[in-house]
């Protein structure tokens, strides 16, 4: 197959699939509606370090989780969630709440959607947990 034909099929195909997903609302995200969901998501991603304490953000987009390894963060990625320990992470203010930079190529950073009060409390908790 000529390269230009192949490239055209790929470009049109990618656009068509993307438009279909938007139309069919396949762009909705997981919401951590309660602690149990956050605890389960953390447990699936950290089998050897189950959650001991969980603080879910009001946005339902993230949770602070304490395990035997210390404090970590769980956050929503699309319809799923992933997690990261907070040791060594940099925390900075962000218009939507806080931004965490992990210095990890596989998980460079995450923006946490927090209310102003949450951002203050979470920042204090994160920095305290890192000491």
């Amino acid at each position: 197959m000529p390269l230009e034909v192949m490239a055209s099929i790929v470009v049109v195909g990618l656009l068509a699939v993307y438009v279909m997903m938007r139309v069919m609302k396949f762009d909705q995200t997981l919401v951590l509606t309660d602690e149990a969901i956050a605890r389960a998501e953390w447990g699936a991603d950290n089998v050897t370090a189950p959650a001991q304490e969980v603080i879910v953000a009001q946005s339902g987009q993230a949770a602070l989780v304490r395990s035997r390894r210390g404090w970590g963060v769980l956050w929503v990625m699309g319809l799923d969630a992933t997690s990261h320990d907070l040791a060594g992470a940099d925390v900075q203010a962000h218009p939507k709440g806080l931004i965490l930079k992990f210095h990890d190529f596989a998980a460079p950073c995450v923006v946490l959607h927090l209310t102003p009060d949450e951002a203050t409390a979470w920042r204090a908790q994160i920095e305290e947990g890192q000491q």
Partner: peptide
């Protein structure tokens, strides 16, 4: 099954 736009587009790329 399930589809999620960001995940699917990453797979396609």
């Amino acid at each position: 099954g399930r589809y999620e736009a960001q995940d699917a587009m990453t797979s396609l790329f």
